[in-house]
Write a protein that binds this DNA or RNA. Structure first.
Length: 417
DNA sequence: TCTGGGGTCCTAGGACCC
DNA sequence: TCTGGGGTCCTAGGACCC
């Protein structure tokens, strides 16, 4: 048996941990630049606020119901996530951290599954203050279904999906578009041919599913029928692509501003590469105008460069990123977003050196190591390249940012006795 | 006025090889 | 008149996830 632990309304719950008076009150967490709604407490969901809507469209509802609004604080959410995962890790044989707010677990073995789930939920609540739901079933896809039921149809927040009859009942109840692996496109395709529920899909012909939903869809259906196709993966695999991109708080029309942003993103990619001990041999840069302003001239620039020798050196990657930028920049546009992608990633240990290499790699590597250790200790970008700038004209809008209670000592709560 | 930021996998088609 | 059979690699696009 497997289980899926899923944090309820995770970002909203994180904000509540340090502001418990918000319990029972509607909360929203916004995307970067405070643009869209990316998390809602139950109370906000009940008020009809949809996932992903631009904030300005629900401004009235926010004011009317005095909804508490937060900018996204990923430092806080990331830290609380780590803590939730480590509490879970102590209670189970194996865990796969699937996303910031979800983990699959090995729930096999003796003991009653339901009780074990309830106990785990209680521990996470007590240790971290984050409410979770748990779905328990023989396959990952069925765990997802069980988790959905746990969240909506149980008091305990834990549900076991094991008996054949209960699985069948659950699948007949579940609309096909709610399935893990069925997105909007597939849902429409399936609905068009009369497949409305997960149960309908289970009864469809294998070769038909294979043709319409590819092998990925077929695996999912097999899992619904009880055959595991997605094993528990304890080791997080290394990224094959790494991207850092942002929309700007304010549009940028000069190349200097873009240079500053792009060098920061390239530096961030290089940092992420070093953290996973990889080197990239391709770097790409893109810049976009604002697609929501149709009156503006629209342009999307994208280009890549191939490196002779794979690298994770900030100095080199920033230089190449700026070279890409020069190629795609057009002075007659106003830009709203830029990004850097590094790909073709290979392990740092096995690099083939280029015959014509001019960089002193060893020296650069020492610089990077020093840079990382300083910044890990004293804060992000405490020491950085000059091109990254100090102006931050491109920076994000974050007007409702909560403190980093658990990761910055200055932000820690003070308790007066 | 105001609209996020990351990822993965699969498939089809083209270019190329022998 | 008739025009093979087997591969690989790469890329773009489409689908999905959080």
């Amino acid at each position: 048996m497997l289980a899926l632990a899923d944090c309820n309304n995770f970002y909203a719950s994180c904000e509540r941990v340090f502001q418990p008076h918000l319990e029972g009150k509607p909360i929203l967490v916004l995307s970067n630049n405070d643009g869209c709604v990316i998390a809602r407490s139950n109370e906000s969901k009940a008020l009809g606020i949809k996932m992903g809507v631009p904030v300005f469209q629900v401004k009235n509802t926010i004011e009317q119901h005095n909804i508490q609004v937060f900018s996204s604080n990923f430092t806080l959410y990331g830290d609380l996530s780590k803590r939730v995962m480590s509490t879970i890790r102590q209670e189970v044989k194996a865990i796969e951290v699937y996303s910031i707010d979800e983990a699959f677990m090995d729930f096999s073995g003796e003991g009653k599954h339901l009780e074990k789930g309830i106990d785990l939920k209680k521990k996470v609540q007590q240790h971290i203050g984050i409410p979770i739901s748990i779905g328990i079933a023989p396959t990952k896809t069925l765990c997802k279904v069980a988790g959905l039921i746990a969240k909506t149809h149980t008091k305990s927040g834990v549900f076991v999906l094991k008996d054949k009859a209960i699985i069948e009942r659950a699948l007949k109840w579940l609309p096909v578009e709610e399935l893990w692996g069925v997105g909007r496109r597939h849902a429409r395709k399936l609905n068009d041919v009369g497949i409305k529920t997960a149960y309908d899909l289970c009864r469809a012909d294998d070769s038909w599913i294979r043709r319409r939903l590819s092998v990925v869809g077929l695996r999912m259906v097999k899992e619904l029928r009880g055959t595991p196709c997605f094993p528990l993966e304890e080791q997080a695999s290394k990224k094959k692509n790494i991207c850092t991109s942002r929309s700007f708080g304010k549009s940028i029309s000069n190349i200097e501003g873009l240079k500053e942003a792009v060098s920061n993103y390239a530096n961030s990619c290089a940092y992420k590469l070093r953290k996973q001990q990889g080197c990239a041999s391709r770097i790409s840069v893109f810049i976009h105008t604002n697609p929501f302003k149709p009156t503006d001239k629209q342009y999307r620039g994208f280009t890549s460069l191939i490196l002779d020798t794979p690298s994770n050196d900030s100095i080199e990657l920033v230089r190449l990123a700026l070279k890409c930028l020069e190629k795609i920049y057009r002075s007659d546009c106003t830009y709203k977003k830029a990004g850097v992608i590094v790909s073709d990633i290979s392990p740092q240990q096995q690099q083939q050196l280029s015959l014509f290499d001019t960089i002193n790699r060893q020296k650069h590597q020492s610089i990077m190591t020093a840079l990382d250790s300083i910044n890990d200790k004293f804060g992000k970008d405490k020491v950085h390249l000059a091109v990254q700038g100090y102006g931050r004209r491109w920076k994000m809008k974050q007007e409702q940012l909560s403190p980093c209670y658990s990761t910055r000592i200055e932000d820690a709560l003070r308790v007066y006795l």
